[in-house]
Design a protein around this nucleic acid. Structure first.
Lengths: 259, 259
DNA sequence: TAAATGTTGTTATAACAATAACAACAAGTG
DNA sequence: CACTTGTTGTTATTGTTATAACAACATTTA
């Protein structure tokens, strides 16, 4: 298989996630390199077995990615990548729309919004999912937002949402670092090297991520913030919330005393 | 499997084309119906074997579509369809972008643009592909566009493109029907019930679709126009073009005579 | 020219990989 | 004890990949 120096495996994998099989992807890519080709030539360029090329071409014809000339021997040609990718994506987007519409109906009909039972503690994995959830939580606040946060957690989206919310409810943030201007209506406490009181030693690693308390109603605790190990806990459980409100209050008082 | 009355198979198929397996789709849909559920409850709602639910949930966790509470027994909950579908689509769109960029480089490096050898006659399948190709051809005209077309072929896109091109080159259209206003610079000949001269009887079915001649350089002949049997022929072959230029001229002269 | 060789298109079979489906077991709970 | 939970392993199914075989036709060779 003679593909150029861009990563052939990666482009094949990408085409696979657009709905092509490995052979379809390889044949399509091979045809992009030439004006037209016979099945044997496609076999030589792509490495797909010659006898299989015919079946694969039929599939690509069905998908509208290639065209055939009924010459002897038959010759085949690819439509442009722009057209082909657009065509594949249009189909996927239609499926996505149907799924979204149908599933949203189901989701709205269920008993209760949110993550479920109040007494449970939920694990949320993945830094993007965590940030998304955090932004959603901030948006849902009605009275007060209290945050202890490592700067990595304070993404532009999160900061922007906090700034917006600070216009009509209390927002307090304790962080070792804040880049940019502090919005007028927000209370930001910057602590460069927070020393945690000894009695809270067991919660020391909590400072690596953050604690976000919304309305004294729910809490999100961000424990790991790496790309692969990003984990957050979320709960509406009274006990859980109480623990972290106390924790926050302690840190907050201590932060006010030291700076 | 107790899914509601929307087509459960269809939504599962749509989720599969977004990258989920059948079991993943079923579990995710099941979780959308409840605030949270244990593995046994998921099994009862979705029909996925209880022992398999655990593996499937792990996969959905990796994909960020669900969340877990480490209670006893564990409970699981779904993120909203909007978030989930967006997440899946973002990933697919990244793949599409990479594929598009990479393949476009390849495509531009090949020897010759277009559908290939001039002497070949290319089959193009699918009404949307045909319309797209037709629009592209119209765009590529340099001197003159001559069309015999059934109204079904004259989609808004095609008409718009023709109107644009008519501003700086000759556009002639013979059609049994034209909806809307005829653009000033375009020559449109409307023939309500075209009677084809006897000697052209063999080409009678050609009138069902159309013939588009670009610059006397290439021709596209649309033969079938149904959703399933839409086929067009395209060629830059001199002989092919000559035949259809003659055919067009005959029809054109005859159309001018009969009004 | 006939025979040998090569090419094309089609069909069938085998192998492989991923998913679906099922079975079994240990530990914990009521 | 029966039931539930979580885990692991095996089997069955399906779709894709890979290979083999053959007939018909085209080209080359002797």
């Amino acid at each position: 298989m003679k593909l150029p120096s861009e990563n052939p495996v990666r482009v094949t994998e990408c085409l696979k996630s657009l709905g092509l099989t490995k052979y379809e992807a390889r044949v399509y890519v091979a045809l992009l390199k030439v004006a037209s080709a016979t099945a044997s030539e496609i076999h030589e360029i792509s490495g797909v077995p010659r006898a299989s090329v015919y079946t694969v071409i039929d599939q690509l014809l069905d998908k509208g990615l290639v065209s055939v000339s009924q010459s002897a021997p038959k010759r085949f040609a690819a439509f442009s990548p722009e057209d082909a990718i657009t065509k594949l994506m249009d189909h996927i987007e239609m499926d996505a729309k149907y799924a979204r519409d149908t599933l949203s109906l189901i989701y709205r009909e269920r008993m209760r919004p949110g993550l479920g039972s109040e007494e449970l503690i939920w694990n949320i994995y993945g830094i993007e999912t965590i940030k998304k959830k955090l932004t959603d939580l901030i948006s849902s606040a009605k009275h007060r937002i209290r945050i202890i946060a490592h700067p990595q957690i304070l993404s532009p989206d999160v900061k922007q949402k906090l700034t917006t919310m600070a216009d009509h409810l209390g927002v307090e943030i304790i962080t070792p670092q804040w880049t940019g201007e502090i919005p007028i209506k927000m209370n930001v406490y910057i602590i460069q090297h927070p020393e945690i009181p000894k009695e809270l030693d067991t919660a020391k690693e909590m400072m690596a991520g953050g604690v976000c308390i919304i309305d004294g109603r729910c809490v999100m605790v961000i424990v790991g913030v790496g790309e692969e190990d990003a984990v957050a806990l979320f709960s509406e459980s009274e006990g859980f919330v109480r623990f972290f409100v106390r924790y926050y209050t302690l840190i907050f008082d201590w932060a006010k005393k030291t700076g």
